[in-house]
Simulated assay, not measured.
Amino acid sequence: MTDLGNVFIRGVVGFIVLFILARIMGKKHITDMTYYEYIVGIAIGSIAAELTFSPHVRMSNFLFGMIIWAIFPMVLSKLELKSFRFRSLSEGEPTVLIENGNILEENLKKENLTVDELMIHLRQKDAFKLDDVESAVMEKSGLISVMKKSNVQPLTPKDAGLVIELDHSPQIVMIDGNVLEKSLQDYGYTKEWLLAEVTKQGAKRFEDVFLAQIDSKGNVYVDLYNDQQSNMPEVKQKLLMAANIKQLQADLIQISMQVTDAKTKEQFKAHAKQMDQLFHELSAHMVETSST
C-alpha cells in the first residue's frame, strides 16, 4: 500500500474514533460547536504540530491528511441536509434539563452535567432562582436555552395593551459630506429636509457633516467634522433640551393614538404641535448661537 493510501485509511479510522469519543463525552464539552468542528479542530491542529516537529515524514503526507480531515465534515454536512435520520445520529437531539419548573435529574446525568454547572448556565441567562425557570434545554451545540416563567418575564408593550409604532433599521444618509440620496428617499425625506435637520445640530452645510444616520421615526444622528463646538457645555445642554422636547412630543403623539375620546385626542395633538414649534424655535436659536 502506498503512503497516501495508508494516510487515507488512518485518517478515516481516526475521524471515526474521535467522533465516537466526542459523542461519548457529551455536548457540554463542545459548547457552541458541532461534533465535526470539535474533532476536526483537534485533528488538524495535531497534524500541523506534527508537520512542524517531524521533518523525517514527507510533507505531502501531512498535507494529504489535512485535506482529508477538511473534506470529512463537508461531505457529512451534505448528508445531514439529505437525511433527518443521519442528522439525528451525527448531531444528537436537544436534551430537556428543566420541564414545567422541575429539574430532570436523569437528563442531567445523561449529559454529565452537575447542578453547579446547570446553575452557571442559568445565571448566564439572568435566571438566578430555579423557581423563575419554566424550562431549560441543552441544544445540540451544547448551549442551554432558558425560558422563564410568565410572571417573572419583563413586561412588554404588548402585555400592557399598548399600540407601539414599529421601528425599523436605521439608515446612513450621509458620509464624508455626501448625501446618500437613495437611503434618504427610502424613508421619504428630501435633501432640503436633511439640510434643515443637520443645521439644527450645528452644521452650516452638508460639507460640515462627517456622518449622519436616520431612524424610521425621523430622528437624525449627526457627527460633524468639527466636534469642538458641539462638545461645548452650553451647546450640549441645548442639544439635551431639544432631545427632551422631541421625546415629549413623541410621547404626546403616542398617547393621542391610544385614547378614544375625540376631544382628549385633539388636546394631545395640539400639545404635540406646540412641542414641535418649541423644538424648531430652540433649534433656530442654537444655529444663531453657533454662527456668532
Rank of each mutant, 00 (worst) to 15 (best):
Ala127Gly: 12
Lys149Tyr: 00
Leu97Ile: 01
Val146Lys: 02
Ser54Phe: 11
Tyr38Ile: 03
Glu111Ala: 00
Ile39Pro: 03
Ala160Ser: 14
Lys125Met: 08
Glu105Arg: 10
Ala136Ser: 03
Asn100Met: 13
Ile98Trp: 00
Lys148Gln: 09
Ser83Trp: 01
Glu80Thr: 10
Ile98Ala: 02
Glu80Gln: 15
Val96Asn: 13
Ile68Gln: 03
Asp126Gln: 14
Lys125Ser: 14
Leu113Pro: 06
Leu76His: 10
Leu97Ser: 01
Pro55Leu: 01
Trp69Pro: 04
Leu143Arg: 10
Leu155Thr: 13
Arg58Val: 08
Phe72Met: 08
Ser54Ala: 12
Asn112Ala: 08
Ile98Phe: 02
Gln124Cys: 14
Ser150Ile: 13
Leu81Trp: 09
Glu99Ser: 11
Lys148Pro: 05
Ile67Asn: 03
Ile120Trp: 05
Lys158Thr: 04
Arg85Ala: 15
Phe72Pro: 00
Glu105Met: 10
Ile67Phe: 15
Phe72His: 03
Ile47Trp: 00
Lys78Leu: 12
Asp126Lys: 15
Ile103His: 00
Val40His: 07
Glu111Asn: 01
Gly65Trp: 02
Ile120Cys: 00
Ile144Gln: 04
Ser54Trp: 07
Arg123Phe: 03
Ala127Leu: 04
Leu143Gly: 06
Gly65Val: 10
Asp131Glu: 14
Ala48Phe: 05
His121Asp: 14
Lys110Ile: 11
Arg85Lys: 15
Glu99Arg: 13
Ser46Ala: 12
Ile42Val: 12
Thr95Met: 06
Val40Asp: 08
Leu143Lys: 14
Phe53Val: 13
Val40Gln: 09
Glu134Ser: 06
Glu50Cys: 06
Ile42Leu: 06
Ser77Arg: 10
Ala43Gln: 02
Phe86Leu: 08
Thr114Asn: 02
Phe128Glu: 13
Leu51Ser: 09
Leu113Asn: 00
Glu80Asn: 14
Gly65Asp: 06
Gly45Cys: 05
Glu99Met: 06
Ala160Gly: 08
His56Val: 10
Glu111Trp: 00
Leu122Asp: 05
Gly161Trp: 09
Pro154Ala: 03
Ala136Phe: 01
Asn102Val: 15
Ala127Gln: 05
Phe62Val: 01
Met147Gln: 10
Pro55Thr: 02
Lys109Ser: 02
Gly101Phe: 10
Leu104Pro: 04
Phe72Leu: 08
Asp116Asn: 15
Asn151Glu: 14
Leu63Met: 12
Lys148Cys: 02
Asn151His: 10
Phe86Thr: 04
Asp132Val: 11
Lys140Phe: 00
Leu122Tyr: 04
Leu97Ala: 02
Lys158His: 07
His56Ala: 12
Leu108Tyr: 01
Ile103Tyr: 05
Lys149Trp: 01
Ile67Thr: 06
Glu80Cys: 13
